[in-house]
Write a protein that binds this DNA or RNA. Structure first.
Lengths: 338, 338
DNA sequence: AGAGCCTATGTTATCGATGCCATATGTAAC
DNA sequence: GTTACATATGGCATCGATAACATAGGCTCT
């Protein structure tokens, strides 16, 4: 028979705990939130009841009644550099976790305004209290503006909306450092394999390269555009291999540099004896390939963490949080004297 | 003065929309969930009101009242292979997104039972409807059992709890394929740089290697243990470089293979002329290093997506969802005839 | 024409925790 | 010995959406 005492196997709630501990639900709530005014004796009873029933609180209910979700949204691009994506994610997650925030991710398959809008909406619907955008905003739509106005947002690549904070990684400086290094070795010209033009990071690195050459009185050759992938580096490397004068190349990412090196080798050029290469990122593998890459180090993990700190108002927007530095290894050398 | 019409700038709710559209909140709810019984005329009015007020629904309220969170939790390890982590994340996110689920991530800094418990608790508290565990479960505690009993869980590395589903990536097979390839080329012995022993994946790959050698009547040399990092591969490679007999090495990951190759080179051995190397993963860079790596491909993206499908009961547990296949490139060759 | 059944819509209770206010002690101050 | 204030606890409304039930027309069928 269908007795009155029948119980569905549902999660115990706060009032179940309260009943078991012989107190009110309110007291349970206070105990679990470490409210000051709870008798140690009572607290012990409550905690025992929690343990006994295997109680765990209901996030949704808490969010609804407190109006705080304690969640941060992270927007990532599915393609475009496995390394940086992982590192940023790890940094965001670590910093958020430390501050008691959960992270909800939204990946977009490709750079597309519609997809971007949908991702932001999805996060907004989830009630995230802050958003970290780790993909470039090519064009900013009204809807995107609306959402980023309502919810604190940090962009990690230098693109900006009216109200999003921008975390200052000085990409131009990275381009300058790389180019400068090659010029200092004695090279008279530096070619560039850039990232896709939609990426502000790519544009800034290219700008740094151009400015550095200009400062040295050198007319920059046309940049060769890749898409961050090793394969795109390979294809542009094949182009470079056909140009006899090339002695120095600045690749906008380590992964592309791998491709460039392979193409140059296959084209009969030795690295670094014939051609020197510098890139940006300093992924873990950079030190272990042949030759070990000279590259400009960027701390993605740290910038992810810094983004969260910014969101949570634990840091100021102005701060230059992440800097670039050169790791000199074996893919660069002075030009061969003729 | 403090008029009665004063309005806090809070998000509009369903009843606000209802009022504007001149219908009940229930009708708004039905409209937004595409319930069949709504007059097209009414629907239009409701949608107009939604648009006008910039209404977006409250996830927490929906979760609370419907009892469904439409969220999947993903547990990742912070270290241990950037590539596989990203790829799994992307796969999980894509599959989840397609099914209308959000993804909440929990990263653990290192393999530690306490951290693992905390991550699972965090996800459970958030009311996730399923969990994908992409890190090895070294030892399974009672608490972990409890949570995975309540919430559908898929583990991606072959470790198991009493109730978690296991997605069958045949790591043993990967080890066998790699070893077989080297033996087929004529090598009489194959050394192994393995992953950390805590990882079931590492153990399985090692087992495949051992079995394959045993089947060929070869006594396996002691495996050299790394931690997946290129650096650990480098250190074990230095050991290998001191052993004159070594002609073939099976590295448990591409990243370690990079390190092994570097060490062997520095030790005066040429790859593949003196020593052949096969590894596992087929990361994007594998094709572009020097020499291009021969490696066993594993589709992490697909396995992430498959894990979600399993969770959502759109696939059966038995299915062998992800297979391994060999990508033969230039890091392997027949042994030098003496 | 009335039974029976769809369709479109409204009403009310409910999910689980918290905010706010009320209340009951204890206890220090005048 | 009141007043006054801190400590410990309970009661009730509330957050925003949905489930379950209720109702009011309009239609079909016998």
């Amino acid at each position: 028979m269908t007795g009155a005492t029948e119980r569905p196997a549902r999660q115990p709630s706060m009032s179940d705990v309260a009943r078991t501990a012989g107190v009110s639900a309110q007291t349970v709530s206070r105990t679990l939130r470490d409210s000051p005014n709870v008798n140690p004796e009572t607290r012990k009873r409550v905690l025992a009841a929690v343990e006994q029933l295997g109680y765990r609180f209901n996030h949704a209910a808490r969010v609804l009644s407190s109006g705080r979700s304690h969640t941060i949204g992270l927007v990532l691009l599915q393609s475009g550099g496995y390394y940086s994506r992982s590192a940023v994610t790890a940094g965001v997650e670590a910093a958020a976790g430390e501050a008691g925030y959960a992270v909800s991710i939204a990946t977009i398959a490709r750079l597309d305004t519609g997809l971007m809008e949908r991702s932001l909406s999805k996060l907004a619907d989830q009630g995230v209290e802050g958003i970290v955008i780790a993909v470039p905003l090519i064009s900013v739509t009204q809807k995107m503006e609306d959402i980023t106005r309502d919810i604190p947002t940090v962009t990690l690549d230098g693109s900006r909306t009216a109200s999003a904070l921008v975390l200052g990684i000085d990409q131009k400086e990275a381009g300058r450092i790389a180019t400068r290094h090659l010029l200092d070795l004695g090279h008279r010209q530096v070619w560039h394999v850039s990232g896709p033009d939609e990426w502000i990071e790519a544009r800034q690195r290219r700008q740094g390269w151009q400015e550095c050459l200009a400062a040295a009185g050198i007319q920059a050759p046309p940049p060769l555009e890749g898409d961050w992938s090793p394969d795109s580096g390979y294809r542009q490397g094949q182009v470079l291999a056909m140009i006899p004068d090339v002695t120095a190349v600045f690749a906008a990412s380590d992964e592309m540099a791998f491709g460039v090196i392979r193409a140059l080798r296959e084209g009969g050029r030795s690295v670094p004896a014939d051609v020197s290469i510098v890139s940006v990122d300093d992924i873990e593998l950079a030190a272990y390939c042949t030759p070990p890459l000279t590259t400009v180090r960027q701390d993605f993990y740290r910038s992810g963490a810094a983004a969260v700190a910014l969101l949570l108002r634990q840091a100021d927007a102005g701060e230059t949080l992440v800097t670039a530095s050169l790791s000199v290894r074996a893919s660069t050398a002075p030009p061969r004297s003729r």
